[in-house]
Simulated assay, not measured.
Amino acid sequence: MQAVLECPKTTVIRLQGNLNAVNALEFERDLTAALTQNDVSILLVDLAAVESLDSAGLMAFVSALKLAQNLGRSLKLCSVSPAIKIIFELTQLDGVFEFEDNSESVTVNF
């Protein structure tokens, strides 16, 4: 009998500053590029240093999540401050996205 174990590769993107209409398109392109790499299974976006998030930034996350789902990959958000987390709660997207406490807390299951 042969057993095959696949170890998913996690890529971490650490954001800082403001995620808004000025830079949301560039951010979405970066997420798309990271998700379409052949060896990436989990894309973890670290929001610890993000100061603000507007609707354009939120839409970049939604687009990236749709792409991840279509590719059979996982998109997780971590280190989300209460001020940013409330935006996800107000838009009822907190039930759609996966949240981790910090980037070290991501577990890999075999």
Rank of each mutant, 00 (worst) to 15 (best):
M1C: 04
F97D: 06
T11P: 05
N109W: 10
A68D: 05
A33C: 11
A34P: 01
L5R: 06
A68L: 02
D39K: 07
S81K: 08
E51V: 12
T32P: 00
K76E: 13
M1G: 11
V80N: 12
S79L: 07
A60C: 12
K9W: 05
G17Q: 00
G72L: 06
V40L: 01
E26W: 11
V96A: 08
S63Y: 14
S41I: 00
C78P: 07
V96Q: 09
A49S: 11
L5M: 01
D101F: 04
N102R: 04
S103N: 04
T91K: 00
D39M: 03
F97M: 06
V22G: 10
S74Q: 15
I84D: 11
V45K: 11
L71F: 07
N38C: 05
A68G: 13
V40C: 02
V40D: 01
L53H: 00
I86W: 07
M59K: 13
G57C: 12
I86Y: 09
Q16G: 12
E89D: 14
D46C: 05
P8W: 02
F88G: 01
C7V: 15
T91P: 02
F97H: 05
V22I: 09
L53D: 11
S79P: 07
F61P: 07
D101M: 10
Q2S: 15
N109A: 02
S55I: 04
E100K: 09
T36W: 06
L67I: 02
E6V: 06
E104F: 10
S74H: 11
V96F: 11
F97V: 04
R73T: 01
L93V: 07
L44M: 09
V106C: 07
S81F: 02
N20T: 03
A21C: 06
T107G: 08
I84W: 12
K66S: 08
T11N: 04
L71E: 07
M1R: 08
D94L: 03
L43Q: 05
V62E: 08
Q2N: 08
L43D: 03
F61E: 07
G17K: 00
R29P: 01
A48Y: 08
A3T: 15
S63N: 15
T10C: 06
